[in-house]
């Protein structure tokens, strides 16, 4: 029963992710209308065969915009997780492996940042850096470092006194070699799961930031901004809000199910 459920989550999660990836990449290959093309005659066109998701208040194709928006959300989330993991691993590995005063100080700072909601931290960085796509990646990336650092540090702390590390030391391996070749591969399982959860949080955070108007700048489409624009026409054209929202939910659901199936 238990393994069945895990397998089910895994298959469903992978299925949703493959569906989303195909949706985004096929959408970029197929000859759809340009996401930013305006056509006044198509203003609020309801969903139909020709316009599967309908058109928005400027007569732009919602399907193309959802595809473009999902793509940029995906890329931003990927960039965020990359920055978070990369620096998180470096900080976590060094502090966990060497310990000492630096560890103590860095972990105190880490705790202080960790107690801070990441969206607030990202807002703080945005108010300093100004709005924009790259700024969002940097802001969210920095906001995500502490949680990764904390996880990696815990793993390194656990591993550094294990027999295999002691053996490697006796054989004369350098600290760098022990950290990269011996301990790091042993943290991958835990790391993979937190990367998946981090990816989900990044998707949600990016959508929230562009919803607030401080992420991807118009006219380029983003799921969050589409939702905030759609809100004004919620009763007139609910499809405008539902499809971008659905894209976010599917993305998060897919990765959520996948990370669930990896849990012990």
């Amino acid at each position: 029963m238990k393994t069945n459920k895990k397998n089910f989550n895994f298959i469903l999660g992978i299925g949703i992710i493959i569906f989303m990836v195909l949706f985004v990449f096929l959408g970029r290959i197929l000859p759809l209308r340009d996401a930013n093309a305006i056509d006044a005659t198509l203003k609020f066109a309801p969903p139909s065969l020709k316009h599967p998701f309908g058109c928005d208040n400027f007569g732009r194709e919602i399907l193309s915009r959802v595809i473009q928006g999902s793509f940029s959300t995906f890329c931003i989330a990927l960039g965020t997780v990359f920055i978070g993991t990369f620096f998180g691993i470096i900080i976590g590995a060094l502090t966990g492996y060497f310990g000492g005063l630096v560890d103590e100080i860095l972990m105190r700072i880490n705790d202080a940042i960790f107690a801070f909601p990441s969206i607030l931290l990202a807002l703080l960085f945005i108010s300093l850096l100004g709005p924009g796509t790259y700024q969002v990646v940097i802001a969210l990336g920095i906001a995500f470092i502490p949680s990764f650092a904390r996880i990696v540090r815990g793993e390194f702390l656990k591993n550094r006194n294990m027999d295999y590390v002691k053996c490697a030391k006796l054989l004369g391996a350098s600290d760098l070699r022990i950290m990269v070749i011996h301990i790091l591969p042993n943290t991958l399982k835990v790391l993979l799961n937190s990367v998946l959860i981090g990816f989900n949080n990044a998707v949600l955070a990016e959508a929230s930031m562009s919803f607030l108007g401080i992420g991807v700048q118009p006219p380029d489409p983003s799921l969050g901004r589409m939702l905030s624009e759609a809100q004004g026409f919620l009763f007139k054209a609910p499809n405008y809000a539902l499809f971008p929202g659905l894209a976010i939910i599917l993305m998060v659901l897919g990765f959520g199910l996948l990370s669930d199936s990896f849990e012990k």
């Binding site: 929230s208 969050g224 939702l227 919620l234 929202g245 976010i248 939910i249 998060v252």
Partner: peptide
């Protein structure tokens, strides 16, 4: 539960507006 978990709060807000308001 798993589906609702994936809904960002602003979209759940929009859905609630749609359901309870409209």
């Amino acid at each position: 539960n798993q589906i609702i978990m994936s809904i960002p709060p602003f979209f759940s807000g929009i859905l609630i507006t749609l359901i309870f308001g409209r």
